[in-house]
């Protein structure tokens, strides 16, 4: 059963990721991103990270992708991009080689140290996932948690300043 879930979720992740890369239309790429994020959420559930799965669906698949689609529609860039034009001739093969090499290196490292990875059958903790996560977050990492609020405020203020339309004489004319 777990194997079946793993295979289905992995297929979702990979199909979505490939759709992001190859689809000429940005809207289709965003939908592929949604598929990938849902697949990751399924993996999180399978690894008993229930809170993170919920956050993944709400924040990523909800807020972030809606933000992407909103910007796509706002800018009117939803027409297809011609992917057959290659501005630099060797760019794509080189990118595939570099990306594939990156994956291969990481996979090789993982396979090399697979014996030192912890046991795969972990006994369930006494606390539920969300309680354990909250206890960890609000005790060991409370300073970092407070700093993220500062980060979010800076991001919001920065975005408002960046996208504000400055009234100059040329705009008025």
């Amino acid at each position: 059963m777990e194997l079946f879930v793993f295979i289905c979720a992995t297929a979702m992740v990979l199909v979505g990721a490939i759709a992001v890369i190859v689809s000429p239309n940005p809207v289709h790429a965003a939908l592929g991103l949604v598929l990938t994020l849902f697949g990751i959420a399924v993996h999180f559930v399978a690894m008993e990270a229930h809170f993170l799965a919920a956050v993944q669906v709400i924040v990523y698949a909800g807020a972030v992708v809606v933000l992407f689609l909103f910007v796509i529609m706002l800018l009117g860039v939803d027409r297809s991009e011609d992917l057959s034009i290659e501005p630099m001739p060797i760019q794509r093969p080189l990118a595939v080689v570099v990306g594939g090499g990156l994956s291969a290196l990481v996979i090789a490292a993982v396979l090399r140290v697979r014996d030192t990875l912890g046991s795969d059958e972990v006994a369930a903790a006494g606390d539920t996932n969300i309680r354990a996560l909250a206890r960890n977050l609000y005790s060991d990492h409370v300073l970092a948690f407070e700093l993220t609020s500062v980060l979010l405020i800076v991001a919001v203020v920065g975005t408002v300043v960046l996208t504000r339309r400055v009234r100059t004489s040329e705009d008025a004319s």
């Binding site: 990938t36 594939g100 990481v106 993982v110």
Partner: peptide, 24 residues
């Protein structure tokens, strides 16, 4: 059952796909 190694390999493949897309 899927082990940790499987998840790490999947993560590596997904990272590589993202890198390819970023470059292409």
């Amino acid at each position: 059952n899927p082990t940790t190694t499987w998840y790490l390999v999947l993560a590596a493949v997904l990272f590589g796909l993202g890198a390819i897309g970023l470059m292409v």
